[in-house]
Amino acid sequence: MTDTNDKSRIKAAVQRRKKAVYTPVVPDVQLGFVHNNVDCIGCRACEIACKDKNGLPPGPRFRRVQYVEGGTYPNVYAYKVNVSCNHCAEPACLPTCPTGAIWKRKDNGIVDIDSTLCIGCRRCEAACPYGAPQFIPEQNIVSKCNLCVDEIEAGRKPYCVMACMMRVLDVGPIDLLRENKYPTKAIGPNDEPVKAVRNFANPDLTDPSIVFVAHSKGKVQP
């Protein structure tokens, strides 16, 4: 529950936030996602696994599989762009938080919200270019993907990744993923990971920790 009575906690959190705004946290290892836009069947098992794990009511969706389709009958195409929180190197949400509830973890780069500090002002929701923060009306707080930090700490992968029936969603150190040096089933033998795809905000904004395997119609010029 939101507890704002403890003024010293808020003070400390706000200070932490101020520091992180001007000197972004550089994590020991930045974890990030990889999603194969082409091979994904769009089944949304990852979404449901996430909702079940986080006990979410209908409405807020920490993970969102976006369906993209185009062309004219009968020459059509379709692909999926699957995004939760991108645990950005320079998260746009973090500076907006008045209570310092949003923080970036030093050990693994996870951008997290301390629910006990969140007052539900929804500024982070407005700032995020990817729609990651999700307002939960029943609790009057904003919450979002924390990369299942409890599972990460236990040496396992997050629920969404472990739910993927096609093995097209994975997690790993983002620098290795970007260089395609990380062994993952999400990237096929003939695939190249890219930082940007159509229907995804410009990654230069926040340096998000995610790479994609792009559909031929979803490629953007670097």
Binding site: D28, V29, N108, I152, G155, R156, V171, P173, Y182
Partner: peptide, 16 residues
């Protein structure tokens, strides 16, 4: 420690 845990994850994610 968190670092140990991360190494554990690392080792599993790499699947060497």
């Amino acid at each position: 420690s968190p670092i140990d845990n991360l190494e554990l994850l690392e080792s599993r994610l790499r699947l060497s």
